[in-house]
């Protein structure tokens, strides 16, 4: 998995970097590099079995009181 991600990232960087550089789209270039670095970091974290925070836990934390209140009406 990690190797596929690294190859895909390298291919994307090889393909996108000269185009973005030539078009002087530096904001896009920054966004691309930051996002790529972030996703590769997540890949490594998953490979190493480091704990990755689950975004759905945050959604659950926000919506749990509302959900409890409304679902208790139905039961």
């Amino acid at each position: 998995m990690l190797w596929i991600a690294i190859i895909a990232a390298a291919g994307a960087a090889y393909y996108e970097y000269p185009k973005l550089r030539r078009a002087r789209q530096f904001k896009e270039l920054w966004m691309f590099s930051l996002l790529l670095a972030f996703s590769l970091m997540l890949c490594v974290a998953q490979k190493r079995h480091w704990p990755i925070p689950n975004p759905l836990d945050w959604i659950t934390a926000v919506y749990k009181p509302m959900s409890n209140a409304i679902l208790s009406v139905f039961n």
Partner: peptide
Amino acid sequence: LFRLRTSRPLIIPLAILLVVLSIVVYP
């Protein structure tokens, strides 16, 4: 959201993110 002129560079990073998150979000 970030007022980018092209969205093509975001495809590969978001795809990698999607594959990782697909495992993470539902334990």
